[in-house]
Amino acid sequence: MESTILFYLLSAMSVISALFVVFSRSPIYSVLSLIVCFFTIAGHYIMLNAQFLAIIHIIVYAGAIMVLMLFTVMLLNLNQEVSVHKFNLTKLMAVFTGGLLFLVIVASVKSSTLANYQAPAYLNIGNAEDIGMKLFTDYLLPFEISSVLFVSAMISAVLLAKKEIK
């Protein structure tokens, strides 16, 4: 009972804050409501018994990435609510891609069976040890490949930030 109330509360908060990200005129409010949205999603993870995922979500997204985002917004002083002039073609393409995304979401919601939903059988997902065992045995190759992806992103970031050697 309590968990149902909590679920609806969290869901309402995440939907409202996500809408606020899009509709807010001031970028700083967008960033702040995105942080709130991340926290509510972390709450959902905890309700799914995935504490490890929840805390990693908070550390990585709310704690590091959003700090950098806020940092950029503050440094560029994007406080002025200016609306950048957009070309008609840009608007058209935005509507088109947004519509495509909407189509994908509708399709996935339609194909899912909510009526007889079963909770996942594997309940120990919250345990760091279990996640480690899974990652390093069953999912070793995807794990290694994604780490290669991260290394390449890091190297390119360093290259971009490096000063020109004269």
């Binding site: 805390i55 908070i58 709310a62 700090v67 760091a128």
Partner: peptide
């Protein structure tokens, strides 16, 4: 006594900077 205690501390720590950032800005 949560099984992610140390990570919880790191998480709270990383969120703590928002107070300073928002206040300063």
């Amino acid at each position: 006594d949560i099984n992610i205690g140390v990570l919880y501390i790191m998480g709270v720590l990383s969120v703590g900077v928002y107070g300073i950032m928002i206040g300063g800005w």
